[in-house]
Amino acid sequence: MRRRLTLAVVYALLVLFAGLMLTPFAFMLASTLKTKADFVNTLFLPDGDGWLGVGWDRLTLANYRRLFVELPMARALLNSAFLASVGSIFATLFSAMGGYALSKFEFRGREALIRLVLGALIIPAPLLIAPGFQNLWKLGLLDTYTGLIMPGLAPAFGVFLFRQAMLNAVPSELIDAARIDGAGEFRIFFTLVFPLVRPMVGAFLMITFLGVWNDFLTPQVVLQSPDRYPLSTTLAMLRNLDWNDYGLVLAGTLVSIAPVMCLFLLLQREFISGLTSGAVKG
């Protein structure tokens, strides 16, 4: 009896907190569908005599229409999708390749490189803003997609994660056996090693995709032309232009997070377990 009572209290607390976590999402969704007047007067959905006492007929898609017709939201969405896809695919590939070399090969300089990767983990991104900006300027890459993408393709964190995963999940005997059978080095990597660390590949793709999608500082520093802006900088610009149009700003926010939210809901199991696997077992 007492056990069931405690369990009921646990559920109540969890539901309460879950409600608190979800409220901002509900507020955002409801706000984007309201007119300016209704935004000020009602909290979630406007009252009315429709189903559940909500004035459904007063809801409007005008905010979304404005975002896509008058404002460059579609372009920003496309920019973000492009940058995040290219960035995450290559960052994952290069990290996996680096991690493979540092876990399954023995060569001179390996220990020094492992130490370099570990040391690089602690470099805070803000340190590189100023010299990184100068660097891109010298290379003529300011205000280009190349300049935005390339610095993110060499994550020490990724090499570290893949090295750890491959030390555990890829038996060296298997690689040797494949070599005896005459398989080429790249074939071994792509058909044997890659599938064995598939969970890490999935998790790291997601981590880097989110990282690029949500990055604000890099595009803010590197880009000047608004038509190249991803969602993060577009939204900041929108906020400066139309701050008092709350519904519009929140609609822009919702459009910005909806794609990654869907991706997360599809892949959440792999993502969360991949993310936490290293810390708990290591």
């Binding site: 390749m97 010299p131 100068q134 660097n135 390339m150 610095p151 393709l153 060499a154 020490a156 080095e185």
Partner: peptide, 27 residues
């Protein structure tokens, strides 16, 4: 072979992280 696998990471790391890191020390 290991250097071939490391090449993309090392190349990009040197250009976009290692070099700016040294530059920031000078800056």
């Amino acid at each position: 072979v290991p250097w071939l696998f490391l090449a993309p990471f090392l190349g990009l790391f040197t250009t976009f992280i290692g070099w700016p890191l040294l530059r920031s020390l000078v800056l």
